[in-house]
Amino acid sequence: MTAVLRARALGKKYQRRWALTDCTLEIPAGHVTGLVGPNGAGKSTLLNLAAGMLTPTAGTIEVCGGRPGSGPAQLAKVGYVAQDTPTYARLTVSDHLRLGARLNPSWDDALARRRIERLGLDPNQRAGKLSGGQRAQLALTLGLAKRPELLILDEPVAALDPLARREVLQDLMEAVAEHGLSVVLSSHLVADLERVCDHLIVLVTSQVEITGEIDGLLATHHRLVGPRRDIATLPADQHVISASHTDRQTTLIIRTEAPILDPAWTVSTIGLEDLVLAYMGRTARVGSGSGSGRRPALEVLR
């Protein structure tokens, strides 16, 4: 497996606060990876480190075989559309395309013009006069026409209406199918991620909670419902992600590779949204402080 992004014990500190700690990851090439987590979890920091906009405080990160932002060859391999889909307000749409063509050695001008035309953007319009959604589309056009090996998108569809959102994702997936490009995108919209992503990273309070292939993650996580039970009595290979209890009943979300044999449980599969929420709720509930090394064990709420 070739990795498009490899991070080892990666960390980033802003003045006193660690925005990302001990992040070890490997993202395989040719895949679409979703990055989820609560606001302030460190998603944008991780993406900025991958794009070379930030330098790590600790650890290492390698993107497409090189150090992010290390030179023109490296910059050509990685496309990055930041969270607020930045464009130059005083430049027109066609100025942006000209700029893209000058700055990017593998620029696909035909792709860029086709896309602008299909979106119905006026080439002579200044970017500052575009709507939020149109600006996002322009920024994405630049990212796609650059023809990078890895395209990094921070909340690419947040500003878009449902129809535009679907169109962006369709174009993105078409580009993945056609050019075999790898994509890492952050989003709060888990339903979108479920459609377009095959890998997932859950980032909570500056740490990676879980990462892996989505089908594999869904196959190894289960919801167990049964009579009330102390979770300390579960088999060692069943890792409890979330637990809630009533007087008589216990509901768990667990991770296990092994079959669940105990007939007392009603076992059901969980969707991606439940999985993400279970991991996101985990650290919030135990109230762990970030950057202090090991997080405390899960507490049982009654």
Binding site: G30, H31, V32, R166, L169, Q170, D171, L172, M173, E174, V176, A177, E178, R195, V196, C197, D198, D215
Partner: peptide, 18 residues
């Protein structure tokens, strides 16, 4: 084709390939 399915449904190409 994979490209057609992907462009229509906005799903991951690897999903269709799989």
């Amino acid at each position: 084709t994979v490209k057609d399915v992907v462009a229509r449904l906005a799903i991951n190409p690897n999903t269709v390939l799989k």
